[in-house]
Amino acid sequence: MSVDKDTVRRIAKLARLAVPESRLEPMASELNGIFQWVEMLGEVNVEGVPAMTSVVAQKLKWRKDQVTDGNQADALMINAPGGEDHFFVVPKVVE
């Protein structure tokens, strides 16, 4: 299967990534090179093979369902590119 310019535009939209029009074609060709190489996985019979879910055999840990941290609003705002008081400011989303 081959990736064209429109496919790159579509996945860039899904990824919320602004890819300039001039980069679409070169990106399609780079991705095609990679996907053609990955095609070799198709020759392996994976019938009945379970997909890996964890590299280390262990049960995920459980803990009590209780608050362990909090009241860090000031710390959370330190790196906000548009922050006022304890709010993240974004462009208007409701008309």
Binding site: R16, L76, N79, A80, P81, G82, V90, P91, V93
Partner: peptide
């Protein structure tokens, strides 16, 4: 995504444009 931390683009139209 330019909202809670990290780089944020200038001159955007709307929230999706901000992300992209």
């Amino acid at each position: 995504d330019g909202v809670k931390f990290g780089y944020r683009a200038e001159g955007v139209r709307d929230i999706t444009d901000l992300y992209e």
